[in-house]
Design a protein around this nucleic acid. Structure first.
Lengths: 339, 339
DNA sequence: ATTTTTAGTGCAAACGTTTGAATTCGTTTT
DNA sequence: AAAACGAATTCAAACGTTTGCACTAAAAAT
């Protein structure tokens, strides 16, 4: 790297680095000629200020750490866009880490982010972390007083602020819609065990059944991963048995895609024989066949709010963690209603 | 931020910072007791080395800049995973920027990345940059001798290495497959004008037609964006006119999803009346209805190779830019063949 | 008893930049 | 002519860490 520095420029003009610094930053007490000569030369030589040295000096790196379990889901992509929308214009850069749902990687990345002195950390915790309930790495973040915002997947303990969707309500809405459409044998492709998200959506589903005096069938609740493939087996087993469900509520749109594939293969009509509701409102869902009824999760909005929350924490040196819970809404499409 | 530093520890034990540094880094000439006491204390106080100061000292930040036009497409997500797979284990962090296909944002982000002294930059250029053909921001990168790798979207000029899929070949394969399946009136939902990707896929399509003595119909070539929505209108107009195409080759899977929606609405059967081939092999395509025949783009592999290429450039102080072109392959599914 | 070795530690410079305080020098005021 | 001012610049310290070299003191070799 042959980087030209302020010192180089100072040497060239036989002046002190401070003069150069002031010239480049349009400071007040600087001779106009000096300023212009230096700025011109800096421009010509492609001088770029070294933000690293500034970070050291100012104790602020203008970088934000973002930690997510994966980036395969459009919901995550949208969340990241929401985050970017806030930070981009303020000159912050995003350092981006994927944990692959692993606790060890999450720990390691938190460590690195702290070591790199990011100004704040936004994190969607990994499945493993949720299961193990080991949050020691967040202790370190707190010790550093680095603003910490949990996005999308909340944790019960109080390690920082959080911005999440109201999963319980979303699940309730979805289930209620199915009941209103006449379904009584409603199966649930539930999320991975351990995650609060899964638990809340399951509870919303169960409570809604109960409130409508439908007794849940434990056979019709299967925990799966957040992907298409893992929905295949459970769905098959449901529809190969005697008593078939007449509706499926999926923990996200992806598992519904998987379920739909099984049903299509078995020539089971949607929504005539089986209604389906997902969760997330993926960009593809309105173009899937059948167009998927789903719960909109406001992914972009979650990212945006989380970013703003972290900025607020950053501006106050004595912040109180805050929980934001967004209300989801139902989008009705062909998988529950003939158009 | 109340960060404990090496100096703080030194003060505590009435020794010099150098001793602390050596203790923490398991240096050779250090008293065992001293080392252990210091390490213990550092651990207890949650000491985290300040990577910023190290970056300044070593002129290496252990960060990599990644610049992409968007993150909505699964192909981009997979590419990023490929990049991560290489850098994660080496302790590099990814600084992540999205340009929204805008030239100005691309410039701005490149500037910031340079200012932050990233060790290398991987970039998928924005549409606007491709159209304007203004690559001055990459001049700055070259001036700094920062390794630069173009991923996924190549540019003709020689500003750095590149890792791309053989778009021409992919398009040729797709078109050939359609012809072999009996189609003669093959329409093409082409990519945005200006992008090399679009141009190459269009050429592959045209050349394949020519080689099979099919004269192309310019009405059946429409430039669209890389999303579902923009495919709707063109497809509609094709199938509302007298002479309908009997096949569609889409510039990516998304536009095919859009085309499929139009055809379904018009009750046109796939593949009996119209065959469809996409490009990208999105994770959803095997579960779409109809399961989409497509060209696999090796997104993960592209990211992985690009990362490795940048590392290689990093290790040599006098690297020669290198172009890698990966061969895509056809995946046949229901949208061109009855199962 | 003297010299040499060695283990352990400290010193100081370096990385690039900013900034309050000090300094220079020319000009204006008394 | 002396004092005061003001514009332009320089000085020096600071941010946190590493590292070659110098230094001390004790142990080992002569």
């Amino acid at each position: 790297m042959n980087n030209i520095t302020i010192k180089d420029i100072a040497r060239k003009f036989k002046c002190s680095p401070s003069t150069v610094s002031r010239a480049l930053n349009d400071h007040s007490n600087i001779n106009v000629d000096t300023r212009e000569t230096i700025q011109e030369y800096a421009q010509k030589m492609g001088y770029q200020k070294n933000s690293i040295s500034l970070s050291l000096l100012n104790k602020s790196t203008k970088t934000i750490g973002v930690l997510v379990p994966s980036i395969n889901h459009s919901h995550e992509a949208q969340m990241i866009q929401g985050i970017q929308s806030v930070f981009d214009s303020l000159g912050y850069m995003l350092i981006f880490c994927v944990t692959n749902e692993l606790h060890s990687l999450e720990q390691e990345h938190i460590k690195r982010l702290l070591s790199n002195r990011v100004d704040a950390i936004l994190v969607s915790i990994s499945q493993e972390t949720a299961n193990l309930r080991d949050f020691s790495h967040f202790d370190m973040v707190n010790k550093r007083k680095t603003p910490l915002v949990f996005i999308d997947r909340d944790i019960v303990e109080n390690y920082g602020s959080s911005v999440v969707i109201d999963d319980y309500k979303g699940a309730y809405l979805a289930t209620k819609h199915l009941i209103e459409k006449g379904s009584r044998r409603i199966a649930h492709l539930a999320g991975p065990e351990g995650l609060l998200v899964s638990k809340l959506r399951l509870e919303g589903y169960l409570d809604c059944l109960k409130n409508h005096e439908i007794s849940p069938n434990t056979d019709w609740i299967k925990h799966v991963e957040f992907n298409i493939e893992s929905a295949i087996e459970p769905t098959k087993s449901w529809f190969e048995s005697e008593l078939r469900p007449d509706a499926i509520f999926g923990v996200n749109d992806y598992v519904c895609y998987g379920a739909v594939n099984v049903l299509m293969e078995m020539n089971i009509r949607i929504p005539e024989e089986v209604s389906i509701v997902g969760f997330d409102n993926c960009p593809i869902s309105p173009y899937f066949f059948p167009k998927l009824t789903t719960i909109d999760r406001k992914s972009f909005e979650i990212g945006r709010l989380a970013a703003q929350q972290s900025l607020e924490m950053l501006s106050k040196d004595d912040f109180v963690p805050e929980k934001s819970i967004l209300s989801p809404y139902l989008i009705i499409r062909d998988s529950t209603q003939l158009s």
